[in-house]
Every structure is written in structure tokens, then in C-alpha cells.
Simulated scan of single mutants.
Amino acid sequence: MPAKPLTDEQIQDATRLKSLFLRRKETDPSLTQEKLAFMCGWKTQGTITQYMNGKIPLNLTAVQKFAEALGARLEDISPSLAQRVDSLQKSTGGYAALANGADMPDSPDNVEIRLYSPSELGTAAKDAERDSDFSIRKMTVSKSFLQNNVKFSALKDLALTPAVGNSMDGTYSDGDLLLIDRGVTRIKESGGIYGFQMTDEVFTRRIERRPNGDIAIISDNKQYEPYIVPRSSLDNIRIHYRVVFAWTGKKFT
């Protein structure tokens, strides 16, 4: 499937990133794309070129890497992604922190939730280069926020993972942060959004039960048709987790 075209906002982010790089290069001629890739933890300059030329959209973790390497603020590169960080922290009542280095102080009122990269969950085995973008490794969230807003099996089963692809556009988007419950390994009667395995990869889609015992695997993005799994083949599906919450990025003007 062809890559999803970048939005005007994402193209503007790429333009700001490239302009910032060129300004830094004027004051430091030794700064090359190869050097910047090394500073950001990427193996080659190919990722840098794709971001700067608007071939792939910047995500939150990439912007954080670029901002740190170039000595800039997040909003200097992507105002919308900078706003996402602010909204994420506000949405959890001030008790959430993304952790690359500094952590929130330990507290009996908080719980630390680990972030799993797509390849760790089996959702992006063919995209190892992109997998390195996700440098955020954990988030601290207040237990009261979870208890008031999320239905889950146990705190120890909660994990985070970034959404990948456009199959669930309309509910959440590529790069949004998903809270998943790894304690759920069966499809509930009410259905829901699950991470499941039928082949070598794990897919995240909506699953609904049908009256005849079949299940429908549904992409909320309407350009994809539902896939029906007959009752006789349900043993071929392995459920890895259920999505219980999503922090989605929105632009407010």
C-alpha cells in the first residue's frame, strides 16, 4: 500500500527541522547529516534525510531526539507535537511523566508503566529502523487516574506501545500512545480493540463477535474492509493484549 501523504502541518514540521539544521550548520560547519544521525542514535543518515525532506512524518520521539541534538525546543520543530506532550501531562491530572532520563519521585499513588516498542510486541518486525525512534521507555501515571478512567485486569499487566499505521484512523492515529492490558488473552463478549496474532506478526484491530460464533476483524479506517474469521478457525487466533486507553494528539487553534 502506498505511504499515506503527509499533512500540511507535517510538511511544515519537516521544513522547520531542515531550516533549524541548516542554521546550526552555519555556526558549526562540522555538523553533517551523518553526525546528526549518530547524535540521535540512528545507524545511517537515511532516516535524517527522510524526515527533513518530508518523506516520513515526524513523531514525538524523533522530535525529542532532534531537539536535544540541535539544542532546540520541541515547539521550534513541531508546535503540534510539543502541545501533545503538554496535553498528555495535563490529561493525567499532572501525575504523568514521560521518561527518557529523569523520573517522577516514587509514590504509593503512582505506578510506572513500561513502553514496549513495536518489534517487542511483534507488530513491526519488518520496520527495525523506525523501531529505534521510540526512545521513551516508561511513563509514570497516577493510580487514581487509571482507576477512574481505565478498565484493566491488574496494574502489573498494563503497558504502553505506540500505534503503528493508519488502520485505526478515526479512533487513534499512527504514533499515538496506546495503553494496553496484557492480562487480557481472550476476546470479551463486548468486543474491543485487541493485539492479536494469526501469522508471524501481531496486529491491532477492533474485534467484534457475530451471533453465529464468527468474529469480525475491523479497521476503523473505512478504506479497509472487515475480515471475517469463521468460528471453526478461532483457535488460530492468539490474543496478546487489549487496548484500554489512547492518548491522541490534536491541534487546537
Rank of each mutant, 00 (worst) to 15 (best):
T47C: 00
V85Y: 01
A216P: 00
W247Q: 07
E26R: 14
I11L: 15
Q45K: 15
A124D: 05
G175R: 01
R186V: 09
P162R: 04
S219W: 02
I218R: 00
S78R: 04
Q223D: 14
S87Y: 07
E120M: 13
K55A: 06
P79Y: 07
A216N: 10
S173Y: 15
V243R: 00
P57D: 06
Q10W: 02
N59I: 11
S117N: 12
G213I: 06
V229T: 12
G170S: 11
Q12R: 13
I217Q: 06
N236T: 15
A163V: 05
E26Q: 15
S142N: 10
Y51K: 03
R73V: 02
N221F: 07
L88T: 07
S142L: 08
V184Y: 00
M139C: 15
R238Q: 15
G93M: 11
S80C: 06
N149I: 03
P79T: 13
Q197R: 15
V164M: 12
M168Y: 06
L70S: 03
D157I: 00
K43R: 13
A154N: 08
K143W: 05
Q10C: 07
D214S: 07
E189T: 12
M52R: 09
P226L: 04
I217L: 12
S132Y: 03
N212M: 05
D235A: 14
P29C: 09
C40P: 04
I218S: 09
E208V: 11
A67V: 09
G191N: 04
V111C: 08
K151Q: 11
R73H: 13
N212E: 13
F38Q: 15
